[in-house]
Structures are given as structure tokens and as C-alpha cells.
Amino acid sequence: MKNKLLLVMVVLVMAILGACGTAEKEKSTNSQGTATEDKKVLVMGTSADYAPFEYVDTENSNEIIGFDIDLVNAIAEKIGVEIEVQDMDFNSLIPAVQAGKVDFVLAGMSPTPKRDEVVDFSIPYNETVQMVVTKKDSGIEKVEDLAGKTVGAQISSIQEDLANEVAKTVDMKVESRNLIPEVVQEIMTKRFDAAIIEDIVAENYVQRNPDLTYFPVEVDEADYKVAVLPEGSELKAQFDKAIQELIDSGKIEELQKKWFVVEE
């Protein structure tokens, strides 16, 4: 009887320890779509070369900062999740959403009909204008002056689409690069005569490079920034609600004032 009682007690202790270990494992899991202390972790894809939306201030740290980073943290607080940020090339972001490698994208991205075929968009959170950036001594002052010139843009961006559209009426060559800093560097070395870059990003580069200037490209419809989500994702309704609340509360405007004011 003593041996049987001892055996039962050992089995009970092992069962209790096993249950505790399982509970602790479940609590500490930190992979995509699982919980950490009861909070779901969402993986956000971005391309951290797009100041002031998302970038790394290498002089101070290796941390990704910017408007979109502050915005996603505000969204996360509202919907009760934690965010893990993955940096990748801009042209890899949509495929990453489709493949389930990230839960959503926040990367200063604008909706297009082509993108709309494979992903869903949140409501807009920022309106933008497209600019032609060029050197002051280039002689380029209007879109028509791009005839015979080489014009740069970021790969898979709406600026690349716009450049190709302009090229249908203006005889110019369009070349693309992976990163915005690469595009700007090509202008500085005169391999590109100009590039199409959105307004607040262009302003930051022009302010830091006194040899650069810019002017707007007239388009039929304004461009907007959105969060990009998998088709049919339940996150869309949550993101839409959170973004609208942030707009209504003035938080979006507060972040714009923080990040979009170019220092003289």
C-alpha cells in the first residue's frame, strides 16, 4: 500500500509540474499571431529608408523611428496588441503580406488599383503631393523640361508609376532604384537628371542639400497613405476604427506636426 501511495503521489506531482510548464510556455510565446502576457503580437513590414515616415537615425541609434512608427504604436494601444517591426525592401512588402510573412504593412504606402487586386487597405491617414526633385543648375523647372532626361524613382512605388505615366507624353527615360537614398544619390552624381519623390520626403532632402530644388507634379487625384493588410483580414475593421479615432482626437495632426516640420 505504501508503494502504491508513493507512486500515486509521484504521478500527481509530475502532472502538476507539467501543467505549470505548459502554461508558462503558452504565456511566454512570442511568435507571429500568438500571445505575450495576453497580448497578440502583430508583425509589421516596413522599408526604413523613407524619412520622416520610417527611417534609422544612424547618428543616434539603430532604432527605426518616424511618423509611421509612432502611428502604429498609437494604433496598437487602441486595439490591444504588441508590434514587431520587420525592415525589408519596399518592393518586398506586398509579397510579404500575401505570403503571410507579416500581418500588415505601414510604410508610407499609397493605394493603387494593382495593389488593390491582392491586398486590402485601411482608411487613409495622410494626404501627399508628388514632386520632381532636381539640381538647381539642371535647367529643369517644369515637367516638360524632363524631355530627353533620365528620371529616377523608387522601385514598385507610385512615383515609379507616375514617372512611367509622364513618360507617355514627355520623351524621358525612367530608371528605378531600391531605396530613396540611392535615388537621391543618383541625382547628386548627375546619373539622374531628376527624380519623382513625395513632398515631405523631398523637403527633407532639399533642406539638407542646398544644391537641390523641387516642384510639384500635377495629378488628377490626390495620393494618400494607408495601412496595407491581407485580403479579408479581420484587422481591417480594427485598423479603420483606430485610425479614425486618432484622426478625430487630433493625434494624427499632432504626429504630423512632430515629424513633418522640416528644420531650417
Score class of each variant (00 low, 15 high):
Asn3Trp: 11
Leu7Ile: 14
Val8Ile: 13
Val10Gly: 13
Val10Met: 09
Leu12Met: 14
Leu12Thr: 15
Met14Ser: 15
Ile16Asn: 10
Gly18Cys: 04
Ala19Asn: 11
Gly21Lys: 12
Glu24Leu: 12
Lys25Ile: 03
Glu26Asn: 13
Thr29Pro: 03
Asn30His: 09
Ser31Leu: 03
Gln32Met: 11
Gln32Leu: 07
Glu37Leu: 11
Lys40Tyr: 11
Val41Ala: 01
Met44Asp: 04
Ser47Tyr: 01
Ser47Thr: 04
Asp49Trp: 11
Asp49Phe: 11
Phe53Asp: 00
Tyr55Lys: 02
Tyr55Glu: 00
Tyr55Thr: 00
Asp57Thr: 04
Glu59Met: 02
Glu63Cys: 02
Ile65Trp: 08
Gly66Tyr: 05
Gly66Thr: 09
Gly66Cys: 05
Asp68Ser: 08
Asp70Ser: 08
Asn73Ala: 07
Asn73Glu: 02
Ala74Met: 07
Lys78Trp: 05
Ile79Trp: 06
Val85His: 03
Gln86Met: 09
Asp87Ile: 02
Asp87Pro: 09
Val97Tyr: 12
Ala99Gln: 11
Ala99Cys: 00
Met109Cys: 04
Ser110Val: 09
Pro111Gln: 03
Thr112His: 03
Lys114Leu: 08
Lys114Tyr: 03
Asp116Ile: 07
Glu117Ala: 11
Val118Cys: 07
Val119Tyr: 06
Phe121Gly: 02
Asn126Lys: 13
Val132Leu: 06
Thr134Gln: 01
Asp137Pro: 12
Ile140Thr: 13
Ile140Asn: 13
Glu141Ser: 12
Val143Lys: 12
Asp145Cys: 11
Asp145Asn: 15
Lys149Leu: 02
Ala153Tyr: 01
Gln154Glu: 10
Ile155Gln: 13
Glu160Asp: 14
Asp161Tyr: 12
Ala163Tyr: 09
Lys168Trp: 04
Thr169Tyr: 04
Met172Trp: 09
Lys173Glu: 13
Val174Thr: 09
Val174Asp: 03
Glu175Phe: 03
Glu175His: 03
Asn178Gln: 12
Ile180Ser: 00
Glu182Ser: 11
Glu182Lys: 12
Val183Arg: 00
Gln185Ile: 00
Ile187Thr: 08
Met188Arg: 14
Met188Gly: 05
Lys190Thr: 12
Lys190Ser: 14
Ala194Val: 07
Ile196Lys: 00
Ile197Arg: 14
Ile197Lys: 13
Glu198Gly: 06
Glu198Ser: 06
Ile200Pro: 00
Val201Arg: 00
Ala202Thr: 14
Val206Gly: 04
Val206Arg: 02
Gln207Ser: 15
Gln207Asn: 15
Arg208Phe: 05
Pro210Ala: 06
Pro210Asn: 13
Leu212Asn: 10
Pro216Ala: 02
Val217Arg: 00
Glu218Ala: 05
Val219Tyr: 09
Asp223Val: 06
Lys225Tyr: 07
Val226Gln: 06
Leu229Tyr: 01
Pro230Gly: 03
Pro230Asn: 08
Pro230Phe: 07
Pro230Met: 06
Glu231Val: 13
Leu235Gln: 01
Leu235Ser: 01
Leu235Met: 08
Ala237Tyr: 01
Ala237His: 08
Phe239Lys: 05
Asp240Val: 05
Lys241Ser: 14
Ala242Gly: 07
Ile243Thr: 11
Ile243Arg: 02
Gln244Gly: 02
Gln244Arg: 15
Gln244Tyr: 05
Ser249Met: 01
Lys251Pro: 04
Lys251Asp: 13
Glu253Tyr: 06
Lys257Met: 12
Lys258Leu: 07
Trp259Glu: 00
Phe260Gly: 06
Val261Phe: 04
Glu263His: 08
Glu263Trp: 02
Glu264Asp: 07
